[in-house]
């Protein structure tokens, strides 16, 4: 959705480069297993799509002649090091196995939970949020929220299925969207443009 929007409108105002870069870090550190394990064709293709689309978005915002001019550089000022460092420490200390790939995988789970924060802060600073950008954040949050249902279903149907790190992080991630969901639905109901209160 976001890539299509940027490609079609040649405009990325309201889009946080910081969040996109965090997602690129999340995908690359989590999908290292592309190199040494195979789960399914669907799984592999989706991993490649996630890595590829976020790399493409970053390229557009950073380097595209027209798109880069529309980037809200002065507004997108979230200090991502304050997210990356704690997640890295958490990944080093709370994991299932003290190996490089496992620590990076766990780090990516923690980082993904908070990766949307720079985008939410930027949306709050943007007076009239572009409809497509609002839809992108809604779809991203909705996608993660659906995992909660998926986990409940798998817990009930698959003996021995449990993954506490993923469940807790995913629940926090979805909770972070709650406020956004509220204003998204309100603007939808009233047929108004989305704007978050400051």
């Amino acid at each position: 959705v976001l890539l299509l929007k940027i490609h079609a409108t040649k405009n990325c105002s309201g889009v946080s480069l910081k969040t996109q870069e965090l997602y690129a870090i999340v995908f690359v550190t989590r999908y290292l297993d592309l190199l040494f394990s195979f789960i399914s064709l669907y799984n592999t293709i989706m991993k490649l799509i996630f890595i590829g689309s976020s790399a493409c978005i970053i390229w557009y915002i950073r380097f595209h002649r027209v798109v880069s001019q529309t980037y809200d550089r002065e507004q997108d000022t979230f200090r991502v090091i304050f997210l990356i460092l704690p997640c890295l420490l958490l990944g080093i200390f709370i994991n299932h196995e003290f190996t490089i790939t496992e620590i990076l995988w766990t780090f990516s789970i923690y980082l993904e939970a908070v990766a949307i924060l720079p985008q939410l802060v930027l949306l709050q600073r943007t007076k009239n949020v572009d409809t497509l950008t609002g839809n992108y954040v809604f779809l991203l949050g909705g996608y993660r929220a659906l995992y909660l249902l998926n986990w409940i279903y798998r817990f009930l149907t698959e003996p021995g299925y449990r993954q506490w790190i993923v469940w807790i992080s995913g629940t926090i991630q979805t909770a972070i969207y709650c406020d956004f969901f509220y204003y998204y639905f309100q603007s939808w109901r009233r047929n108004e443009k989305l704007s978050l209160p400051s």
Binding site: D33, S37, I39, S40, N43, M46, K47, F50, H96, W105, Y147, N150, G160, Y161, R162, Q163, W164, V166
Partner: peptide, 10 residues
Amino acid sequence: EKEEEKKDEL
């Protein structure tokens, strides 16, 4: 007992 995680989710 080691918690076995199947990393089949995205």
